[in-house]
Design a protein around this nucleic acid. Structure first.
Lengths: 236, 236
DNA sequence: TGTACATCAGTGAACGCGCGTTCACTGATGTAC
DNA sequence: TGTACATCAGTGAACGCGCGTTCACTGATGTAC
């Protein structure tokens, strides 16, 4: 009986666990992951710092929860953006929606984005629990590329791939469950898109487009367009 | 007389300044930028922690020096790699050399790369002094793209650009001193290449290709090749 | 329904740590006559 | 070349801070009879 008969204690526990996580997320947005402090969270919640340890065994466990929470939140946002595209066959629109969703999410809370995609927090080693939620966003990107292949899209240019190159990206070809594995050329394109998307967002958020790009929104939109064309999702 | 008549004091000063920076660089490689500690550096050098303040007025100043030093070192490595390509007209080779130089440099000292291109250090605001050295690497990338345009290379695909999009990247078109400004399409390509290159390196170093890419070296080489083809530096 | 015991949440003090920065000081190096 | 003074490098103690984590404890909640 896992659902109904929750004791008052269990209810309070769930609530406080969430309150701690909420406050941790806020802290994260304010000071960044490295400065996240168990004591500060407890202080803000009006409780003794030691009480937090009834809910999370260590600061690292709290960070892990935040990371998983972040990947899940991003994944949900990205999936919702994709699902919001009515014309499912317009892969260019779906691709654009996904890219913009990632960027919008990142800009809404740069520290949180940094926790996931920036420099790893010093002294913290992400456990395997964080891997699965992380793939949510990636899977969607790859699946759009896979759909492009199925739809017969022609990428702008293709390089010949050596056996070693094909082997290097083997996991990507079977990353999403499909009838047949993805062609290596498309898998490579997916990897390039992945790098460009997150690279662009990181460079923008971390200040490397300073004085080089004047209008980030416009420019990003155009980069996404360019990627869509390179992928063969639409013609120029 | 700025050169010859250096007093013993000035010599000692220069030497210790360098020793502090060297040790700071080593610390950086070991523990990362956020954990860089004035006291630890002093300890390692066998001096009082307060003595460091005769050379750098604050921890932030030390970080700034490390950042400038890092951009300069990366810039020098990248320029050397480019200069090492004898056939100056083989833009694909030059482009490849530059990309691999950035990645090699980053892999040699990931923390140092993270200081420059990762999450900004919390509580630290990089002063303008760091901007100029940062452009060294970027300029070289842009100048290769500009050379591609001058050589009449044809990128794989081009999207039509609105006035707003052209305006957004205006600084890039006049980023390197040339007879004529760079075409907007090439400037856009430069920006995409910039994002892809650093995005790929960051994703790789920060663990996001884990279990997705099996052979990083091979894969990166191929991504660079693909970019060269997309840029029209060579045919597939 | 009521009692006896076990479980759990939260407290507050404490441990031990390292940090950045300041300051009055000593002694060496440099400079001007 | 020698002396008098100014400048500078380096010291060691101290200030004030915040951190993660532990531990013995009190009082409330849950459970079994």
């Amino acid at each position: 009986m896992p659902s109904a008969p929750r004791t008052a204690r269990a209810v309070a526990r769930a609530e406080l666990t969430r309150a701690i996580l909420d406050r941790a997320r806020e802290q994260l947005a304010e000071v960044g992951p490295a400065a996240l402090s168990v004591r500060a969270i407890a202080r803000d919640l009006g409780m003794a710092s030691s009480a937090v340890y009834r809910y999370f065994p260590s600061r690292d466990a709290l960070l892990t929860a935040l990371i998983i929470d972040g990947y899940d939140d991003l994944g949900a946002a990205v999936e919702a953006a994709d699902a919001g595209v009515r014309q499912r066959r317009r892969l260019d629109l779906r691709f654009g929606a996904v890219c913009h969703a990632v960027r919008d999410w990142a800009r809404a809370d740069p520290h949180r984005y940094g926790l996931l995609y920036g420099t790893p927090v010093p002294g913290y080693a992400a456990p395997d629990d964080t891997v699965a939620p992380a793939t949510r966003t990636t899977s969607l990107l790859v699946s759009i590329v896979a759909a492009a292949q199925e739809a017969g899209c022609q990428p702008a240019s293709a390089t010949t791939m050596s056996r070693a190159e094909i082997a290097a990206i083997a996991p990507l070809t079977s990353f999403v469950a499909l009838d047949s594995p993805i062609d290596p050329e498309f898998a490579l394109r997916a990897s390039v898109v992945y790098a460009t998307l997150f690279g662009h967002i990181s460079l923008e958020l971390f200040g490397h487009f300073h004085r080089a790009i004047l209008d980030y929104d416009t420019h990003f939109a155009h980069v996404v367009d360019q990627m869509a064309v390179d992928l063969g999702l639409r013609t120029a």
